[in-house]
Simulated assay, not measured.
Amino acid sequence: MRYSWKDSIYLQREELARRLREPLARLAERCASAQGDRDALNAVLCDGFPGIPYCKYLYVVGADGAQLSDNVSSVGIVPGHYARDRSQRPYMKETVPAWGFLLSDAYISLYAHRPSLTALQAIRSGPYTIGYLGADFDLRNLPVTSELYEEPGYWRQIKGDPAIRNTLFQQTRVESPMDRNHEQALSILEELLTERGIFQCQIHFSSGQATIWVADDPFRYRILDHEALTDPDICLVFPRRPYPENALIPQADIARVLDTMRTLRMADENIYLRMASINTFNGVVSLTFSCDGSHYMRYDELLQKDIAFWFGNAA
């Protein structure tokens, strides 16, 4: 099953809430009997802290958000937080559901400036909510329980800098070194992508360079400048590698994709391709135009669109 990043967040939060709800509810019941007594609350929190997995701090606040206990951590009481007003913190502004448990959205912590989230469990006396047990979590300490999401394959368009869009027709394409030698440069890139283990390539048409990632050393990028892209000898630097069987772009379509990018670069003087990328494994290409708009789409969708789609019938 393919998960989006939002799906992965939902599954991760659901699992974390499942692990926290019962131990926090039990500890909140113990806090109810100590409410109004700072030392008694601290003692309850210190005793209950080991039972709250992954927790960084425990504390109790009143219904108005004022802190009624000290912070309690794995090393004991952390002074300096008693009577602190938490009412304006992001988690205190969320609505606690009727069942009394809230797992907040992630936020940036006030002191450490790190991604964090807070669980709130209502402390009740009869039918009344008299405060909340708070548990803070540093996202670094939380386990990842959901699968890593995959990028969607559908076409996405992202608008860029409005200042560039507003002056689009006041600028024209200036011939770059790659424009003057585009056939040779793209032939070299085709060889690298199909025969030399390059799986990701960003082509900077306007500056005449390409950034590449090699399957043999995927964590580092390499930059091919104009000189390298006009010298077929550059292919000798990279050993031959079989085209990967699990690549989503067929080997035979690499040349067609690159040729489409060349067409989009040269078709119009005002609206032209500035940068493009191709990734053989996820089958997606990106296109960034002179208007600073970017498009992300599957390679086959790109190949299905003719020039009129991008520039109108006038093209």
Rank of each mutant, 00 (worst) to 15 (best):
Y107F: 11
Q304F: 08
G131A: 12
L148K: 03
N246I: 06
D70S: 06
A215S: 09
H204A: 14
F309P: 12
S146D: 08
D37K: 07
T118R: 00
C235K: 01
R165Q: 09
L103C: 04
D85Q: 03
G160S: 08
E94H: 02
C291K: 00
V44H: 00
A43Q: 07
L224T: 02
R180G: 14
L120V: 06
E15K: 15
A40H: 02
V75Q: 11
V61R: 00
R30A: 07
K159N: 15
I9S: 10
A43K: 06
R19M: 14
Q184W: 03
D268G: 07
D306K: 11
L186V: 02
F309R: 07
Y296N: 05
S125M: 14
E245A: 13
A135W: 04
E190N: 15
T211Q: 10
D136A: 12
S74V: 05
Y149P: 10
D233I: 11
V60C: 05
Q304T: 12
H113Q: 12
L148T: 13
I307E: 04
T263G: 11
R30V: 12
S73G: 07
L117K: 01
A215P: 05
S125R: 11
E22F: 09
K56D: 10
E15G: 12
D231K: 05
Q200A: 10
R13F: 13
S4M: 08
T288E: 13
A276T: 07
